[in-house]
Design a protein around this nucleic acid. Structure first.
Length: 275
DNA sequence: CGACTTTGACCTGCGC
DNA sequence: GCGCAGGTCAAAGTCG
């Protein structure tokens, strides 16, 4: 059971939709999101956030957040791709098998030969209002691709330049609000911050451990689930809810409060890094 | 000259 | 099985 309690979540949609629950009953201890109305009554959940949001908004054709309007949401999004079905057990096993191995294309081919599925790393997405696409987060990134996709003209794909580090990052402009940058991290850093880079202005905690430097200034942070990310798993079920209280239109990270304070401890685990 | 970006081609998963 | 969409590769180009 994850022991983290969320704070300051906000999702100013037609419904309040930010109940977060974690359950030890889930094979891989993944996150659950349950969508509730203003009376805190459950109105929807599902295996993908997109479906869940569509459900919660009673909108069959509109993509998630399309009904939100210009008001920025603040929903932190993170998950592994394991779900609560039988399939997840298999995925968990695959994860164990594939952890520590290269996830290159050749590697995937090899895995496919063995009848295994490609494991997708844990993901974490957030939205920031920024003029620059690539936020300074303390790590060094190398761009390895850029391709237009639906609802996102030119998302950029970055990889951590640290050897053996498999963390990836996708950066895209919000389709609905180009001033917003959606950053999606995949995987967790298991190495210290490079010493040659500037101190980060914005840094999700799992990117910063084990030695996060203090933030330099207040940074306005908007977070929400990108609408086109089907891999954000949301599971059915309503047990072990943890509530997101004190909603506010914008989520800010004050000087004395790290972004990590809003991230579940499951994302903060730092395992020994083998050089 | 090394590190990094660009970009077309290619691969893979998924829905129909 | 086919086609589309998303993601990745890798060669060439750029920059400091």
């Amino acid at each position: 059971m994850w022991d983290h309690e969320f704070r300051n979540f906000h999702c100013p949609t037609d419904h309040t939709c930010s109940r977060v629950s974690l359950s030890a009953a889930d094979p891989c201890s993944y996150m659950r999101l349950n969508f509730t109305d203003s009376l805190q009554s459950p109105i929807g959940y599902g295996r993908s956030l997109e479906k869940a949001l569509a459900f919660s908004h009673s909108s069959s054709s509109q993509p998630p957040f399309s009904s939100v309007g210009a008001t920025p949401n603040s929903c932190i999004s993170y998950s592994s791709t394991q779900d609560g079905s039988d399939k997840s057990n298999k995925d968990c096993q695959l994860k164990e098998l594939e952890d520590g191995s290269e996830s290159s294309k050749k590697g995937n081919k090899l895995a496919n030969k063995k009848g295994e599925k490609k494991h997708k790393e844990t993901r974490f997405a957030f939205m920031t209002k920024s003029e620059v696409d690539l936020l300074e987060d303390g790590y060094r990134w190398r761009k390895y691709g850029q391709k237009a996709v639906k609802n996102s003209p030119y998302p950029s794909y970055y990889r951590c330049t640290t050897q053996k580090c498999r963390v990836k990052k996708r950066v895209e402009r919000s389709f609905q609000d180009p001033s917003m940058v959606i950053t999606t991290y995949e995987g967790q850093h298991k190495h210290p911050l490079p010493t040659t880079v500037k101190r980060p202005m914005l840094f999700p905690s799992f990117m910063l451990r084990p030695s996060p430097p203090p933030p330099r200034r207040r940074h306005e942070l908007f977070t929400r689930m990108p609408g086109d990310m089907n891999n954000y798993q949301v599971a059915a079920g309503a047990d072990s809810l943890m509530f997101a209280e004190n909603f506010s239109p914008f989520l800010q990270v004050p000087d004395n409060e790290l972004f990590q304070d809003m991230v579940p401890s499951a994302f903060l685990k730092h395992e020994p890094y083998e050089q």
